[in-house]
Nucleic acid binder design. Structure first.
Lengths: 187, 187
DNA sequence: GTGATTCCATACGGTAGCGTATGTTATTGC
DNA sequence: GCAATAACATACGCTACCGTATGGAATCAC
């Protein structure tokens, strides 16, 4: 789990995302995290002022990652339908090592229900992604002002169902795309 | 908050759903709930064996309510598109008093991430609802086997966005229905 | 190497919750 | 009105965690 005996701030944050994904926000405790890293809370309180500080840094890391995701989706794919699907697939893909290699979106959404700061950050992220989906749909000739929200919601729900083992985003997304394409002008 | 000085088991369960909706699963503690009801945990431990017992009863209550919801939707509306929209709107509507008058679906879904029993119950519920959506879509001539999951996911996402203040299920659902109707044969 | 700095271990007082035990009040049967 | 019982209050020992304080070990500068 640890490649060296000394831990970095990033190690602690990754452990936090692992704990968040598997045991929820209540697992973000200094001593429990220390145990999961085979160390003591002495290390924790050296790297972080206190738990609120630690959670703030987790949130900043997540916030930055999400922004990068959207920007990548904008720049690295051509346009229209392919770009939309790419954004959604990317967001549903395997999590980077900084998040402990786990899908953390559902956990962060659950966390937002009990933490105002997380809730605010998530509202930002939802707005950004939704605006991007709106642009892509507009490029496809779909201009219903409420549609982007519905499409983005479908992605969120698929991600949630996938996380809970009751769904599969890999099959759900194409079905959604088919629905959208059938409604688009010229198809 | 309490109409009589003595509390019933149902009062305690309703308080639990209120706490769950506002402060998450970590708020399901005997002493905190007692404070919210203006009493002490002596009452709690008279009505319930312990916290796991209490949570089981909350889960049973929720599980029963959801089953009732779906059955009502099946029986009380004609068929096809209207029936589908009715199911979704009903599920997103105001919560009954047994749940403290709050929308608890997002909170229960968050809860399921940290409690295996909740997760199992939720998987059941998702399967039941999804099967029902599949039947309705089939009635409308839409037979893509993965579509029901996508439609149900869209509903889940809209509910989630609504709960977080970043969306509005009242405008999102019609947009989704329009999309579905456009894809259905004969429209 | 050795001195300074970085990083971690341990011990401590304090808070909060759990579940039990036992006492106290309210309500009911009659 | 008065047992009997249902419903609640209070006190207790226990555990887990927080944040601090301080000492010790590992690493780096040179």
């Amino acid at each position: 789990m640890a490649k060296s005996s000394r831990l970095t701030k990033e190690d602690w944050l990754a452990a936090g995302f692992r704990a968040l994904a598997t045991d929820g926000p209540a697992a973000l405790r200094a001593e429990a995290l220390a145990r999961s890293l085979g160390t003591t809370k002495g290390s924790f309180y050296w790297h972080f002022k206190d738990l609120p500080d630690y959670k703030r840094q987790m949130l900043m890391l997540w916030r930055t990652k999400v922004a990068t995701e959207v920007i990548d989706a904008v720049e690295k794919t051509p346009s229209g339908a392919a770009q939309l699907q790419d954004l959604l697939i990317r967001a549903a893909g395997p999590a980077p090592a900084a998040f402990g290699g786990r899908a953390i979106e559902p956990a962060v959404r659950a966390w937002s229900l009990t933490d105002p700061d997380v809730k605010a950050a998530l509202a930002d992220v939802d707005a950004i992604r939704c605006a991007f989906v709106a642009k892509l749909l507009s490029d496809m000739g779909l201009t219903d002002p409420h549609l982007p929200q519905a499409v983005y919601a479908a992605y969120l729900g698929l991600d949630d169902l996938t996380a809970k083992g009751s769904g599969d985003i890999a099959t759900g997304l194409p079905a959604l795309m088919t629905l959208i394409l059938r409604a688009a002008p010229g198809n």
